[in-house]
Amino acid sequence: MDAFASILSAEMAKKKPTTKPAGATASEKSAPKDEATTTSKYLRRADIEKARQEQYRAEQARLEAERAERALKKRKAEEEAAAERERVLEKRQRLREEKQRAAQEAEAARRAQETAAASTPDDDAKDSLAPVEQMDEATAIQKLRDLHEPITLFGETHAQRLRRIHKLTHGGSSSPGTPRRTPSPPPLSGGELLVDPKNVTSDPAYVRRQLLGWFQLVISEWQIMLAGRDDELKESYQGKLATQAMTQAIENLQPLFRHLKKGDLDEEIFAKIAELVIEAQARRYVRANDVYLRLSIGNAAWPIGVTMVGIHERSAREKLHEKGKSAHIMSDEATRKYLQSIKRCLNFAQTRWPPEDPMQIMG
């Protein structure tokens, strides 16, 4: 019994907690608890959420820094590209101004040579020019009107006007033994280009000069319009097509210009072109287009739209094969080309000088 009691006492002593001395501090009491907490295998959800938020903020700060760096690089690249474009534009402008200056100097030199050559006529020319130099301004203007010439040119003085009258009436000064050639009259300008329908039959030579001047005016305005475009538009596909169309139209109009200068244009074509120009100058472009259709298609348009049976068909065939009338005026290749170029000039004139009546806009 004593042995059993001793063993039981020993076991109970093991199970009994050890008491700490009264002087122990609070930190020593809480030490085992903190140690147990740090060695625990479980984490609090608040700690996990806090760590995730800190990681998210760090990632956003890094992305913002990278974004700011890329924006800075892009802004620097755009500034450099803009500066480069500005330098290129300045260089092009400088080259253009140099070319214009060189052309103006060459033109001034040429005019100076012509003035010097014209201001030193020989003795025979001086004798023949003497009556003209005594002409006053009113007489000179009336003389030019009688010659169907412009009364004054741009920047022309009275002495130059008298010299022009002398050249028109005497063929200019020439050296002995040199055959005199009648100079071509100067082109018309301004209000002198307006064609009067009465002059088509009464004064066809003057109307031919008016037609030639009007087509040259349209071409010059066309060239100015295309030259004023941006370089980017000029180098585009549509810009190159527009330039090519203008160049082709100018080239195809040369036979018409030669016929107008020589005065050997077909009477029917001349009358229709004069009517077309009259309508275009009045900004009646729909009527001008109708005249162009009658001019280009001719009598070949007669069978279109009629019932091709019986007398209608026979009448159409008789119209087409009637002697003295062309069934198709565009059978000639050169004529076909300059008539198409006239249509292109008409289209440009509609955009350059738009009609007041919207119903006169061609489709």
Score class of each variant (00 low, 15 high):
99 K>T: 01
114 E>K: 07
105 E>M: 04
101 R>K: 15
104 Q>R: 12
127 D>T: 12
109 A>H: 02
121 P>K: 03
121 P>T: 01
111 R>P: 01
107 E>M: 08
98 E>F: 04
124 D>T: 12
119 S>L: 07
98 E>L: 10
130 A>S: 09
125 A>M: 13
119 S>N: 10
104 Q>S: 10
109 A>G: 04
127 D>Q: 13
127 D>F: 14
97 E>A: 08
130 A>Q: 08
113 Q>N: 06
95 L>K: 15
95 L>V: 14
123 D>S: 15
111 R>F: 01
115 T>C: 12
111 R>K: 05
121 P>S: 01
104 Q>F: 08
105 E>S: 06
98 E>V: 02
107 E>G: 01
130 A>H: 09
98 E>Q: 14
122 D>V: 00
108 A>H: 07
95 L>H: 12
99 K>C: 00
108 A>L: 06
127 D>G: 11
124 D>V: 12
120 T>W: 07
123 D>A: 15
103 A>K: 04
109 A>S: 02
125 A>S: 13
122 D>C: 02
101 R>N: 10
102 A>Y: 02
94 R>M: 10
130 A>K: 09
128 S>K: 09
118 A>L: 14
104 Q>Y: 06
99 K>D: 00
94 R>A: 11
95 L>N: 15
115 T>G: 13
116 A>P: 07
101 R>Q: 14
117 A>R: 13
127 D>S: 12
118 A>N: 14
115 T>K: 14
105 E>C: 02
122 D>H: 01
106 A>H: 03
123 D>G: 08
106 A>R: 11
105 E>V: 03
120 T>P: 03
92 R>F: 02
102 A>T: 06
121 P>Y: 02
111 R>E: 07
117 A>N: 11
111 R>I: 01
93 Q>W: 08
102 A>E: 10
95 L>S: 15
107 E>T: 07
119 S>E: 10
123 D>Q: 13
127 D>A: 15
94 R>S: 13
101 R>D: 09
105 E>N: 03
129 L>W: 06
101 R>S: 13
101 R>M: 11
125 A>K: 08
112 A>P: 02
125 A>D: 09
122 D>P: 03
104 Q>H: 10
125 A>G: 13
106 A>F: 02
104 Q>L: 10
102 A>D: 05
99 K>Q: 06
109 A>I: 00
